[in-house]
C-alpha cells in the first residue's frame, strides 16, 4: 500500500518557511479586512432586511440570498472576471477581498438578524423614552447587545474567511499563503511537502484565532 519510491524532502521545503510565514500574514490581513468590511455591511443588511420599505428590503434580501446560495469561489470569480464586462478590473488582492467580504456580509447579516430578534423590544422603547434618537438607540443600546449574542457565530465566520482566502490562488493571487506555496510548488515540484506545511500553518492560524476570540469573549462578557 505504501511502497514509496519517492523520498520526502522536508528540509528543502522548510527552507521556504520564512516566505510562507510572510504569506500567512497576508492571509490573516485579508481575512481581518474582509471581516471588518463584512460586519459593517452586514449590520446595514440586517436592518434593511426587516425594514418596512421594499426598496431597502429587496436589494438586501437579494444580496443575502445570492451570497448564501452560490459558491464563494463563484463570488470571487464574479469580482475578478465578471466586473471586467463593465470595464472594472480588480487586482487579485482586491477581487479576493471583495469576494470574501461579500460572502461574509451575506452570512453575517442572517446571524445579526437572528441576534436582533433576540433583543427585547422593551430595550429600544426604554432608550427612546429616555430621549434618545432612533439611530442613537440602535447604536448605543441595541448594537452592543447584538454583537454579544452574535459573537460566537462571528468568530466562526472569521475562521471561514481565513479558509476562503486560499481561493485567491485561482484568480492569480500570489502573495497570500496558498499563492506563495503554489508559486514555490511550480518551481520546486515538492507539492506534498509544501502543501503539508501550508496545511499546518492554516490549522495553527485557525486555532490561534479561535483562542484569541475566546480570550476576548472572556474579557468582554464575563459579567
Amino acid at each position: 500500500m505504501f511502497d514509496f519510491s519517492y523520498r520526502f524532502q522536508w528540509a528543502q521545503a522548510m527552507r521556504h518557511l520564512p516566505r510562507m510565514l510572510e504569506g500567512a500574514l497576508v492571509t490573516l490581513e485579508i481575512a481581518i479586512l474582509s471581516l471588518v468590511v463584512g460586519i459593517a455591511i452586514a449590520v446595514l443588511l440586517a436592518v434593511a432586511r426587516d425594514s418596512k420599505y421594499i426598496w431597502l428590503r429587496a436589494p438586501a434580501t437579494a444580496w443575502v440570498e445570492v451570497a448564501r446560495n452560490t459558491p464563494a469561489l463563484f463570488q470571487i470569480y464574479m469580482a475578478h472576471f465578471g466586473l471586467g464586462s463593465f470595464g472594472i478590473y480588480l487586482s487579485p488582492y482586491t477581487a479576493l477581498l471583495a469576494g470574501i467580504a461579500f460572502n461574509n456580509a451575506g452570512y453575517l447579516a442572517e446571524t445579526f438578524r437572528g441576534a436582533l430578534r433576540a433583543i427585547p423590544e422593551t430595550q429600544t422603547r426604554a432608550g427612546r423614552s429616555l430621549g434618545m434618537g432612533q439611530a442613537q438607540t440602535f447604536r448605543l443600546i441595541v448594537m452592543p447587545q447584538m454583537f454579544r449574542v452574535a459573537f460566537l457565530p462571528t468568530t466562526n465566520q472569521m475562521v471561514w474567511a481565513i479558509l476562503m482566502t486560499s481561493l485567491g490562488v485561482t484568480v492569480g493571487m500570489a502573495t497570500d499563503l496558498t499563492g506563495i506555496v503554489q508559486n514555490l510548488n511550480a518551481r520546486t515540484f515538492r507539492t506534498f511537502e509544501l502543501f503539508a506545511i501550508a496545511a499546518v500553518l492554516y490549522y495553527l492560524i485557525a486555532k490561534t484565532v479561535m483562542l484569541g476570540a475566546q480570550l476576548i469573549a472572556w474579557r468582554l462578557f464575563r459579567y
Binding site: M1, F2, D3, F4, S5, Y6, V159, L163, M164, T165, S166, L167, V169, T178, T191, F192, F195, A196, A198, A199, Y202, Y203, A206, K207
Partner: peptide
C-alpha cells in the same frame, strides 16, 4: 478538527499529490 480547519483546496492538493506519491 483538522479536516474542518484546513482549507479544502489545500486538502485536495495534498491528497492528490499523496496518491501520486503512493502510486
Amino acid at each position: 478538527d483538522i479536516l474542518r480547519s484546513v482549507p479544502l483546496l489545500i486538502q485536495l492538493v495534498l491528497v492528490n499529490s499523496f496518491q501520486a506519491i503512493a502510486g
